[in-house]
Design a binder for these strands. Structure first.
Length: 873
RNA sequence: GCCCGGGUGGUGAAAUGGUAGACACUAGGGACUUAAAAUCCCUUGGCCGAAAGGCCGUGCGGGUUCGAGCCCCGCCCCGGGCACCA
């Protein structure tokens, strides 16, 4: 041993605190600053080690601060991260802030301060709280979606979507509050009234950016088979995408001037059973179909339907309502005349906004037909004499001349083909998934890097920067003038938010950005993206055009769609991340977050990732190979934690009273990670006592290493065996995220340790390594002190202990005796006992004997090493 | 209504079809202490029994099995998600 090494040993040993009792107030900050000074959790982008990327769903830094639910998931990933490091992986474990969003904007409106100020203060608070929990994040990779250096690439990705024709503008209905003169989010509308002030709201069409996620519907569905996700989450995404095969069928209208009505059905085989049709109140043909005598009734009905909130529509689900338009269509299969109704149970957003109603075989149609005394024709034979309608089961086609007797799937194909031959039908695949409404009329979001120009200037753009434009121009028309969307050149990104006088919307349905004339009305250089206010003289040069900037901003989803990629290389100014980093780290190996994101966030991120894959930016098809949902922690009252219920638990309180190691351990001990569980302060004492016990087993009364620990001590065979069992179990349970029982196993070991009169130092050190991912501060402290001169580095650098398979084996096992399946005692027996030997031992067992006396043995079931079941008459 | 989870002691919970209740919490009793705290030991699903032990017991009713908390069928209850999706 060299003198130099001795010095470093001494140095590390003295890194520990000198506290005599388990003083977490001293130990925890001490080791947190040790890790910080040593940059212990820095992940290198090049390494010979295998990589492991473990990611949390990054938080929205709300003003309320951290909530006890946050550290639950974060502790789980931290345990994994620390464990994988000990297993020799180069671990990437980053954190950032999803910082755009409504609450910061509402705060800005209220106080008049810039949302960035409030957001920064919230981030500072969140960061303090998260650091106090001792998570092993690589803080050098921290990011915030509101940072222009970050959203520059959010805007860049949007421009890729734009040039590929995946972004367009359309009039879309949104909640509008005439009183507040503003657009409201769904969550700001409560029972058809604005959350603020309780004013009435209405649906109003506004110009919106929409992303063509439906173009990826098939792939989003198909690729679910390649990811390791909870089945329930996969099923939810499948249902959301909602693929169904059917046909679009044209019904000629009786009034030939109106042409025909296109419907979508999944059951063309029931076409003969169509006795009426329904169009959605919003259907473009509704007006034309309405006859003068029906006009008043239809208009009134449409007005009522438009005013209905989603909630009201839901409540009225049991009571179908509708109005006859007065018009008829002709069923193309049998030329029958069918009445056309308007009803709000048909939605404009799904299929074609019009249906053929087959009341005999559809529950909603049946209910409607009964209510309005419309005819009901059965066309599927249920196979039984008495059929209860509506019949939606399997059967053969009937009452359908030319198709009778066919199995319905065959009839479906044949009818579709026959009508297709006459050009009145087309087999189609329909999705429930709708294109993604991607703009907000708000201030606090990423500005769209888009400007609007006239037709002449657009022609100029086509000539100069045609490769950045979509094949079909994105346009909108206002007051007879068509406006064309052109991108701000990527070299000019980020396009930052201008300062505004007021964070209130403009009052015209546009965001507050519409009030910043100098920013809004510009001369734009198509090639460089440079801009000067239109109030100034046009700069000289061919590329300058007169433009008006887009005033919409992006939704909060935008930033969270790709943040997992930025962590790989967050300082990069040339790309969202370098190709090397994208290749080395790939995508997260484990992603942990709440089930409330099962559809939207996870679907949107998958969509963007696939677009980036198509662009050749990322090498994988899917962003999140393995996903785990932590269950939510309820309040002590078993209700969801919320400010209004007053049952919110703040982690700061627990850290102050018991320390973060106790909190971390307790959060994991509460129950299975995925289960929803109520918070209970009672159990905290239990895990705190466990840590105290570990401390006492390691540290004596004067702060010295416990006298029972020595290098010379020989562990009892039982203790040695238990250690190896514990190493095996804890490792396996961390891998499968069963942290609650991993902690139980450590408790069992500690109880044995306590009873052992002496113990070898290596045994204690190995145990501390098992504890380290869960209670890292205490583990570091005890590692340094118990290790004394024998450990030279932090426990973080120690290789995860290995268990010895040979030590797990034993020569004797407990064999359980059963008579007729009932437990009748047990006995230690030699391993490898034959059935006859086992039966002989059982017969001799005093607890078994009485149950066999005078009985004839019918059968013996012997599972060696486990159970012997003797079945008697 | 549909889909997905659940239902086990006083409580949080354990149990590859093989001893139901590990590990904790609470409660009770004891040791140590002048006392308390802390710690340690014992008891802690119900019923019967002095004990040995026995009987019952995983929401309810059936079934499969040598053996069911676990698998199958039918109910009841709780939680979460979705919802006139043609």
């Amino acid at each position: 041993m060299t003198g130099r090494r001795k010095v470093s040993q001494w140095r590390f040993y003295t890194m520990a605190t000198k506290c005599i009792e388990y003083n977490f107030h001293e130990i925890e900050p001490h080791w947190q600053s040790f890790w910080e000074q040593n940059r212990s959790f820095r992940a290198e982008n090049t390494s010979s080690k295998p990589k492991y990327y473990v990611l949390d769903m990054f938080p929205y830094p709300s003003g309320a601060g951290l909530h006890i639910g946050h550290p639950e998931g974060y502790t789980a990933t931290d345990i994994i991260a620390r464990y994988k490091r000990a297993k020799g992986f180069n671990v990437l474990h980053p954190i950032g802030w999803d910082a755009f969003g409504l609450p910061a904007e509402q705060h800005a409106v209220k106080t008049g301060t810039h949302p960035a100020t409030n957001t920064a203060a919230n981030i500072t608070n969140f960061k303090r709280q998260i650091k106090a929990l001792g998570f092993s994040y690589d803080w050098e990779r921290e990011l915030a979606t509101t940072d222009p250096k970050y959203f520059r690439w959010t805007q860049w990705i949007f421009l890729q979507l734009f040039s590929r024709g995946l972004a367009y503008v359309d009039e879309r209905p949104v909640w509008w509050c005439p009183e507040l003169r503003t657009v409201l989010a769904n969550e700001e509308v409560i029972d058809g009234k604005s959350e603020v002030g309780g004013f009435p709201v209405e649906r109003r069409n506004l110009r919106q950016w929409v992303l063509r996620i439906t173009a990826y519907a098939e792939r989003l569905l198909a690729d679910l088979k390649d990811v390791d996700w909870p089945d329930s989450t996969k099923r939810m995404q499948e249902a959301w995408i909602g693929r169904s095969e059917g046909a679009e069928i044209l019904f000629k209208l009786e009034n030939e001037a109106l042409g025909s009505l296109k419907i979508f059905t999944t059951r063309p085989d029931t076409l003969f059973g169509c006795t009426y049709m329904v169009v959605a109140p919003e259907h473009p043909l509704t007006d034309a179909l309405t006859t003068p005598s029906q006009k008043a009734a239809v208009d009134a009905y449409r007005k009522k339907a438009a005013a209905k909130s989603d909630l009201e529509r839901t409540d009225l689900a049991k009571d179908k309502s509708g109005v006859f338009t007065g018009s008829y269509a002709i069923n193309p299969i049998n030329n029958q005349r069918v009445p056309i109704w308007v009803a709000d149970y048909v939605l404009m957003g799904y299929g074609t906004g019009a249906i053929m109603a087959v009341p005999a075989h559809d529950e909603r149609d049946y209910e409607f037909a009964v209510q309005y005394s419309l005819p009901i024709t059965q066309v599927i034979d249920s196979g039984s004499a008495e059929t209860k309608l509506p019949f939606v089961g399997d059967g053969k086609v009937m009452n359908s001349p030319g198709y009778d007797g066919m199995a319905w799937p065959d009839a479906k194909k044949k009818i579709t083909a026959d009508l297709a031959a006459r050009s009145v039908a087309k087999a189609t695949v329909n999705f429930k998934l709708r294109d993604w409404l991607f703009s907000r009329q708000r201030y606090w979001g990423e500005p769209f890097p888009i400007a609007w120009v006239g037709a002449e200037d657009y022609a100029k753009a086509k000539a100069k920067v045609g490769n950045t434009l979509p094949t079909e121009p994105v346009t909108f028309t206002s007051e007879g003038v068509t406006h064309y969307a052109v991108p701000i050149a990527t070299s000019a990104l980020p396009l930052e938010l201008p300062e505004v006088q007021s964070y209130l919307p403009s009052g015209t349905g546009e965001s507050p950005l519409a009030n910043v004339t100098e920013w809004l009305e510009i001369w734009l250089n198509l090639e460089t993206g440079a801009a000067v206010p239109a109030s100034q003289a046009r700069p000289s040069g061919e590329s300058w055009v007169r433009a008006r900037r887009e005033t919409n901003t992006m939704p909060q989803w935008a930033g969270s769609c790709w943040y997992y990629l930025r962590f790989l290389d967050n300082g990069n100014d040339d790309a969202l991340a370098s190709p090397e980093a994208l290749r080395y780290w790939g995508v997260p190996d484990l992603y942990v977050g709440g089930a409330e994101h099962a559809v939207l966030h996870l679907l949107y991120a998958r969509f963007w990732h696939k677009v980036l894959f198509d662009l050749g930016v990322v090498p994988q098809k899917e962003p999140f190979t393995k996903l785990f949902h932590q269950g939510i922690i309820l309040g002590e009252d078993g209700e969801k934690m919320s400010k209004s219920r007053g049952n919110v638990v703040n982690p700061d309180t627990i850290i102050a009273s018991h320390g973060t190691d106790t909190l971390r351990l307790y959060l994991m001990f509460l129950g299975p990670l995925e289960a929803m569980k109520p918070w209970s302060p009672n159990g905290i004492e239990g895990v705190h006592r466990f840590l105290q016990k570990v401390w006492r087993e390691c540290i004596g009364k004067e702060g010295e290493v416990n006298a029972k620990i020595s290098d010379a001590a020989v562990d009892s065979p039982d203790l040695a065996k238990l250690l190896h069992e514990t190493i095996k179990k804890v490792g396996e349970k961390i891998e499968s995220l069963q942290f609650n029982t991993a902690i139980s196993d450590m408790m069992v070991f500690t109880n044995a340790l306590q009873k052992a009169p002496q113990v070898n130092r290596s045994t204690v050190l190995a145990f501390l390594q098992l504890l380290a991912p869960f209670a890292p501060h205490m583990a570091e402290e005890l590692w340094a002190r118990v290790g004394g001169g024998t450990v030279t580095t932090s426990i973080l650098h120690a290789t995860w202990p290995r268990f010895d398979e040979a030590k797990l084996a034993s020569s004797e096992v407990k064999l359980v005796f059963q008579v007729n399946g009932k437990h009748r005692g047990d006995q230690l027996v030699n391993v490898g006992l034959s059935q006859d030997e086992a039966v002989a031992i059982a017969r001799a067992n005093p607890r078994v004997t009485p149950h066999l006396e005078g009985k004839v043995v019918k059968r013996v079931v012997y599972v060696p090493g486990k159970i012997l079941n003797i079945v008697v008459e």
